[in-house]
């Protein structure tokens, strides 16, 4: 069971790497989802080791929040694609323009 702690940490860090180095917005959202699942795994492991059942309920709330995040993120990507015809982070310079 203890190997799963390292797995959760690794999933979180891999998602972080992908979020920084990926270029299109869909891949960035995929990596954010990976980070969320690492955190959910950590919650379940804590619930097992401490005996605190509320941590498992936190996983349900984490899933709800990640579903909202993905839905709004994808709709923003579609709106951006309609306006600028691209989804790459290099081509979007709204702040610096």
């Amino acid at each position: 069971m203890s190997i799963y702690y390292y797995l959760a940490a690794f999933l979180f860090c891999l998602g972080l790497l992908g979020t920084i180095f990926k270029k299109d917005l869909i891949s960035i959202l995929l990596c954010l989802e990976l980070m969320m699942s690492g955190v959910a795994l950590l919650f379940i492991l804590f619930s097992k080791s401490t005996g605190f059942l509320g941590a498992q309920l936190m996983v349900i709330f984490t899933m709800i929040i990640s579903a909202c995040e993905v839905a709004i993120g994808l709709s923003l990507i579609i709106a951006l694609y309609r306006k600028k015809q691209t989804i790459y982070t290099d081509d979007i310079k709204i702040i610096t323009e």
């Binding site: 069971m1 203890s2 702690y5 690794f10 492991l45 097992k48 080791s49 005996g51």
Partner: peptide, 23 residues
């Protein structure tokens, strides 16, 4: 980040790997 997390997990691995969940 992975190094920090692995260090934290490594130091507490005995308390973390106990199964306390009864119900």
């Amino acid at each position: 980040v992975l190094g920090v997390l692995a260090l934290v997990i490594n130091n507490n691995i005995e308390t973390l790997s106990v199964n306390n969940l009864t119900d």
